[in-house]
Amino acid sequence: MNKKNYWLTGLFSIVCAIYLFPLAVLVINSFKDKQAITGRVFHLPTKETFVGLQNYLRGITSINFFQSIGYSFIVTVLSVLLILLCTSMCAWFIERVGGRFCRWIYYLFVFSMVVPFQMVMFTLPYVADRLGLTAPWSIPLVYLGFGAGLSVFMFTGFVKSIPLSIEEAAMIDGCTPLSTFFRVVLPIMKPTYISVAILQAMWIWNDYLLPTLVLDKTKGYYTIPMAIQSAMTDSYGSVDYGAFMALLVLAVLPVILFYILGQKHIIKGVISGAVKG
């Protein structure tokens, strides 16, 4: 390693520090008294301004945080599982049966990838409401519908590369299409399942507009992004910044944990999604 490379390491270390700075500021301020935040956001807490976990306690109770994280969790996990199961089966069917009908459906799925949410943002909540899909355990159907495009596209791309002979051998051995799919096709497609799961989970966990419009807020169905937004806007100028900082930390924490645990898969998933999408 030559001198120039040490210089680069140094430069990147500084950039890295700048990159992490906002998050560090956030964490530090979540332990400060609320008056001390707006006055001196870059200062470390002193003996007078350090409040321990008080901000966290106020934040959690003010917006029912644990309930929100529960709803976010239900919506994300159910939606991702539903999307994985249904769209992979659908993609296999489309690719293996072929014909004009399947081709048209496939093009329709690809077309839906291009359409921005704004195009359906006034009508989708209407349709969902008429069908009663306004609870955290029924909104996954809406996500399956609106998110099907990318998943079907990615799965079909992979199915094309699976040799037909493997499946035919299974069928000759007496497997029904269902057991062929679950015993032969599904294990081969494992990498695509992981990529699709990560892309969809990142989207659904952070999604704000769709759940805001579709979920029935009168029943208290708030996901994390919705709860953060309402903590800020519902208090009209008298925002409790201490509690708010603590809530932001709590909102970021699960995502960071998820990232640390599955870093390799996440980066791989993002690359395959980007190249195809």
Binding site: T87, M89, C90, L108, L141, P177
Partner: peptide
């Protein structure tokens, strides 16, 4: 079994609202 669930959701979540 294979196509209908996704297709139905796709109609509800995309085609009809669109």
């Amino acid at each position: 079994i294979f196509l209908l669930p996704t297709l139905a959701a796709f109609l509800i979540g995309f085609v009809v609202p669109f």
